[in-house]
Structures are given as C-alpha cells and as structure tokens.
Design a binder for these strands. Structure first.
Lengths: 319, 319
DNA sequence: TGAAATCGTGAGAGCGCTCTCATGGTGATC
DNA sequence: GATCACCATGAGAGCGCTCTCACGATTTCA
C-alpha cells in the first residue's frame, strides 16, 4: 500500500478500489491516524482556516452580545466544513496592518470582518491581497464591490416606527446609532421614511452611540427639547434601556406616557423592566450566512454580493 | 545571503552579525515577506495555535456573557505571544472524541477548556495525548493533577453570606447552581460555612441551574416552604434575577422584605431593577491567567497547578 | 486476436521552512 | 608565528503530505 493511495482515500478521491479504500480506512482507524495539517497546507497552499476578525476595541466587543451570536453562527458552519476558525481582534491602524500582512501571507483562506467603521479600507486591502472577505453590515464605501451580509435595518426601523404610528402615537422621536456605521445611518433612514409616509413631522433627532449612557443622555435632551413626545424609536436595545431610565428619571411613565421600541433583541431586552418591545435581528443566522458566502467564494462558486436578512418586531411591554 | 541566515534573523536567533541582520530585515520589508506558517510548523512540529474549547451546548454558550469575557482575556495573551486562537465548541461525546483526535494529531499546541461538566475525562485524555491543557474552574475529579484557573467561589459565597448576616438578616436562604459543576458546589459550601460560623440555621436549600427560569422557580419554592426568609444568596446573577421576579410575583419587596445577592457581576446585574448586589469574578483576568499558564507549560516552564483569583462584593440596591 | 482506451496504483518530486553539520575566517593564547 | 577556540555562514537533509506522471492490468472495440 503506497502513501499515494492512502492519501487518495483520506482525501476522498474517487479513483480508488473498494478493497484498497477499506484497507486504508481500517489501518487509519487502528493507529488513530490524523493527517498532519501543516504538511497538507504546505503542498496545497491552503491553510484550512478562516479568520474571524472583529474590528472593534475590546471594550465594545466585550460588552456586546452581538459578536457572540455572530461567532456562534459562523463557527457552526466553518466547523462543519472541516475548517478552523481563528479568532482575532484588530481595532487600531497598526493592528489592521499586521492582520493584512498576516492574512496576505497565506495564513488564512478568507476573512469574516465585523464592525467596520467609517471608510475603513481594510476589506479592499484584503481583497487586493487575494484574501476573500465577507463583511457584516453594508460598508459605507464601495458596497457594490464588496461581499456583505446585513439585516434589513431600513425596513426594521420603518416597521418599528409604523407600529408606533399604528398604535396612535403622533410625536415619535428617535435616538440614532453612530453615524459612521451603516446600521446607524440606515435605522435613521427607515424611521424618517415611515414618518414621511404617514405625513408626520419629526421631533428633533438625538444622537446616541449604541450604549446605555448615550441613550439616557439623548433621551433627557429630547424630553427637554420637546415635552410633547409620546414615543421614541431607539437604534439599539442598550440605547432604549438608557432612554427608559431617562424617562423614569423625568417623572414620566414608560408606555403610558412614552412608548419605547429598541433594535437588536439582545437578552437584556426581555429582562428590562418593563420588558422591551424591539426589532429582532437573526444574529446567528447572519453569522451562518457570512460563513456560507465565504466558503462559496473560496470554492470558486458564484455567490451573491449582498445578503440582506429580514427582521421581526417583537412586541413586549414598552410599546 | 543564504536561506539559513535569513531564517536565523527572522526567528530571532542570536548568532547573526549586525550587518547580515539588517540586510535580511531590509529585504524582508521590501517584499513584505511573511514566513509560511505551514512550512515552519511542518519542521518544528509546533502548530503555533491554541484551542479555545467550550464544552457546552451552543444555547448556553450563546446566552452566557461569561464566555465572551474569557475569550477576550485569552485572546489578548495568545495574540501577544504571536500564536493564533482557534475557537471550538464541543458538547457531545462525539464532538469530544473528534476534538481529542484533532488535538492529538498535532493541530494545536495546547488547549484551554471551559465549562467542563461532571466527571468528564476530556482533560485527562488530552493530557495523555500530550496536549497541555488548562481548565477554567476546578474539575470535580483529579483536581490535584490537572491545571486550572478558578475564582474564589467558596470565599465569594461566604463573603456574600457574611454581608447579609452583617446587615441584620437572619433567615438567609440560597439557590444553588448545578451540582455537577464545581462552581455550583463551592458556592453552596461557602454559604454553608458562613452560616455555620455565625451559628445560624439554614432554611431549606433550593437548586437552580444558573438560569433565570430556574431561579424564579426555586425562589417560589423557597417562599412557599418558609415565608420567614429575609434574604437569599443566588449562585449566579441570572438566578438572582429570576429570584427577584418570584419575590415580586409573591407580593414581597426586594431589599425591604428580602435582600438578594447574586454571583458573577454580568452586565445584566447593573441593569436589573433594582440593581443587583453581587460577587464580581474577574472574568477577563481569568482568561488571561489561563492563557499564561498554558504558554508557560508549552514553554516547559514550571507553572502552578492551580490559580485561584480573588472575587469582590459589589454593593448595589438589592442588599 | 490485436490495438486502443480505461482504470487503479506506485514512484518520486517538491511545497517552504528549520536545523544540523561542515567550513572558513577572526581573534586569543602560548 | 603556530595552535586553538569561537563565531558567522552556507550546504543540504528532511519535516509529511499531495499530485503528476508512468506503468501494468483490465476492458472494449474493430
């Protein structure tokens, strides 16, 4: 039995006799043989691993359950395909450079990139180094040339706003997300579209940064600027939780006086008091979709440039 | 300039002249050279990567911010050492077997294992296949032969209980964590020690599973069994949040009627209403400590078998 | 029955690196 | 000035696998 035949069997090549195949399989099982990945990579030129890159500071990464959900979804798909998922964090310019160098050196077959900010050129640089890349969230530039998976932020925001309108609210404010991220921009756009379609005027817009503290400050600002507000659409659940605190602190009642809708449906949304009505993103499914797109690209199969997943309104106690 | 000399420079070997070193470095920078990891691994026999294995079902992994914190801590240390972190999930027997096979095949230089249950032999099997392993949490068996990093569960539980005693509470109940995990056992033991030291009798013990639902059910059970309870030590924050719900549902007041202390200090603890008093574990530091121990072991340096990190009582509004 | 096509198998090169060993040059020692 | 030790360097083997190519056996067709 030659090494070549054994290799053929283990790689699943077709042109091997049944007899030889069984012999190899038995022998492999007996010695609990595991092929050496390094040797295989060396000759095939593929690393059999995928980078999961979070382009975010550790602080935000740590406090945001969103990433864990994406990681979960991606890991499932990658592991099923027999590849390994290499987890990486790179927030600074320098860390970006190092990652590009690393990836371009053939250490990974592709990259899943999360939480890109502003006009970051990271994906373009990876692609120009022949590292297939799939992003989470539509990039602010060259969205027509990069692969990405996103949820329907515009539609979700519009859905939330329409729901508030439908339940009789008329002075509907919003607290935005960071405007250097697509999700922040799109959720504002959806809100404005729904308001315009209903012929309602918009109270002043307050800006947040997807955090509790910023939501609380923004809501206090809104209440001071326009006491007639009877509803608020917050661009994230954490923002909404902050807004609820400000509402209570101002002596107003959540729901009775001011309805609140969030976005994301993180675990906290259900735990909040009162339980938060919100727009659910299919986070794990987004992670799976990203990984599937990337595997398609690596295999050379045609893959859609963009994948936008539907969202869903979860009615609880705040609206 | 020979390949050998270039290799020496890039690996940081000492016996190279200043002149040759600079020449190599300049040339490498010019062509943006990145050494091929597969080729290096093939000859050194080291994979330059570390497995981060969560021995938990995806559902629990997904809902528990604990893992994200550990991942964060471990990733920092591993990346700084120039290694890569391979993220893996394995909850079933079959997945365990596959992981052992994979790791024993030299695909990783060591493993960080989280959330071991019962008398799982996974770490022993890894060690006997020469895969250095460090666990999070003291294992239930052979704790004197395995490397692990833990927080001071006994001390933290005692601290919480003593604090309740010190604030005048006398009928202090507990809701435990799963008793097939060390953290669950130890937190119960610390509670019982503190109670015994103060000469107080213990109300009936209720068992939980670190989840909101189990905490709520357990608390309802406790209130029915002994209405005189004036405090409860819950073995996790989620359990405590469930307990608070049961207290409110029974028409009692948190703090005024029944004080509540949790364990973990997850983000939800601060967000809960009222804000939860709890015992904080230094999660990211535990992740760092695990990674550091593992790197020491791989380098052949002496490393302590066990590392127990101190916890801290965070006073908020529930006790 | 002979030539051509088909198929399973083995031999052997080579992926890019590290590491041992041999070599030649330099400085120290007697 | 001869000998030795030491150090920087180069040559070359080999890590474990894949993959091409050649070969012999079998089948197919004229």
């Amino acid at each position: 039995m030659s090494r070549a035949t054994a290799s053929r069997v283990l790689r699943g090549a077709s042109n091997v006799s049944e007899q030889a195949r069984n012999a190899v399989l038995d022998a492999a099982a007996e010695i609990s043989y595991a092929p050496n990945r390094a040797a295989r990579s060396l000759v095939t030129g593929r690393s059999e691993s995928i980078a999961f890159l979070v382009a975010e500071t550790e602080d935000r990464l740590f406090s945001d359950p969103f990433f864990l959900g994406m990681l979960r979804g991606a890991q499932t798909v990658i592991a099923t395909a027999g590849l390994q998922l290499v987890f990486t964090v790179a927030s600074t310019e320098d860390e970006h450079r190092r990652f590009i160098h690393y990836a371009a050196g053939g250490h990974v077959d592709g990259a899943l990139v999360l939480s890109l900010h502003g006009r970051d050129q990271l994906p373009q640089q990876l692609e120009s180094n022949r590292v297939p890349t799939v992003l989470s969230g539509r990039p602010l530039t060259e969205a027509d040339r990069l692969y990405f998976v996103d949820s329907d932020n515009v539609g979700g925001a519009a859905m939330a706003t329409e729901y508030l309108i439908g339940s009789g609210r008329r002075r509907i404010a919003t607290i935005t997300g960071p405007q250097d991220m697509c999700a922040g921009q799109d959720r504002l756009a959806g809100y404005q579209q729904a308001l315009a379609a209903a012929g309602l005027s918009a109270p002043p817009v307050a800006h947040g940064r997807f955090s509790i503290a910023s939501g609380q400050a923004a809501m206090a600002e809104l209440l001071a600027a326009d006491p007639s507000i009877d509803a608020v659409f917050a661009a994230s659940d954490l923002t909404a939780i902050g807004a609820m605190r400000a509402i209570v602190a101002a002596g107003r009642r959540v729901f009775d006086d001011i309805a609140v809708v969030g976005f994301d449906d993180i675990g906290d949304a259900e735990l909040a008091h009162p339980a938060l009505t919100t727009v659910r993103q299919p986070i794990a499914e987004m992670g799976r979709a990203m990984a599937n797109r990337l595997l398609q690209r690596i295999a050379g199969e045609p893959a859609p440039l963009q994948t936008v997943l539907p969202v869903e309104l979860i009615r609880r106690e705040t609206a």
